Simulated scan of single mutants.
Amino acid sequence: MKDGYGGMDLHLGAGTRFYCHTYPENPEAGPILVIEAAGVSLMLSNRTRGAVEAGDVENARRLLEVVSEFTAEVERLHAINGAAVDSMQDAAA
């Protein structure tokens, strides 16, 4: 898919599961990051599983950065929503 584009939305709900499969006894087999949600299983690995190159390390570090940003934003919004719920409960009391 040289100039193509694909997309997928995966909504992470309460039943979402995350796994990181590693294979210390077989370095050629992994690692594989798995996200399972809403009947979908998304698996991430480097292109040549096990034959890790510098670009794979860079991608893994960037993934960590982006997930950390996502986590911080979810936590921020949760704190805002929690404050809003608290003030609605105070007003109802």
Rank of each mutant, 00 (worst) to 15 (best):
E75A: 10
A84E: 14
E69C: 04
A83F: 08
R17A: 12
D90V: 03
F18D: 10
N59P: 00
K2R: 15
V66G: 02
L44Q: 06
V85I: 11
G50I: 06
H78P: 01
E69H: 02
T22A: 14
A14P: 07
R49T: 08
V40M: 07
N26L: 10
G6C: 07
Y23Q: 10
C20K: 15
L12I: 13
L33V: 15
T16L: 05
R62S: 05
I80M: 03
R61K: 08
G13R: 04
S41V: 14
M43G: 04
Y5C: 05
G82P: 02
R61F: 01
V34Q: 02
V66F: 10
D90C: 01
G13W: 06
L42Q: 03
T48Q: 09
L42P: 01
I35Q: 04
T16M: 03
G15P: 00
R61Y: 00
D56A: 03
I80G: 00
A38Y: 02
N26R: 13
E69F: 05
E36K: 02
M43R: 08
E73F: 04
S87V: 13
N26I: 07
M8W: 12
I80A: 01
S68T: 14
A83I: 12
R61V: 00
A79K: 07
P24K: 06
A37Y: 07
S45L: 07
D86E: 14
Y19R: 13
A60W: 05
V85T: 10
L77A: 01
D56K: 02
V57T: 04
D56F: 03
L12Y: 03
E73H: 10
R17K: 15
S45A: 08
A91F: 10
T16S: 06
V57G: 01
G30L: 07
Y23G: 09
T48H: 08
L63G: 06
A54V: 04
G7W: 13
E75T: 05
R62A: 11
V74E: 06
S45C: 09
E69R: 05
A60L: 03
V67G: 00
P24Y: 10
G6Q: 14
T16E: 12
A79Q: 06
V52I: 13
Y23C: 09
D90G: 04
R47G: 00
R49C: 06
M43V: 00
I80K: 00
Y5F: 11
N59T: 02
S41Q: 10
T22D: 14
S45T: 09
S87Q: 13
Q89I: 11
D56N: 08
R61E: 11
G50S: 06
A51V: 02
P24D: 14
A79L: 05
E65R: 01
A93E: 13
L42S: 04
P24V: 13
E65D: 09
D86Q: 11
E58H: 07
M1Y: 13
E36V: 04
V67M: 14
S41C: 07
A84F: 12
V57E: 05
G4M: 12
C20P: 04
A91Q: 12
L77C: 01
D3C: 07
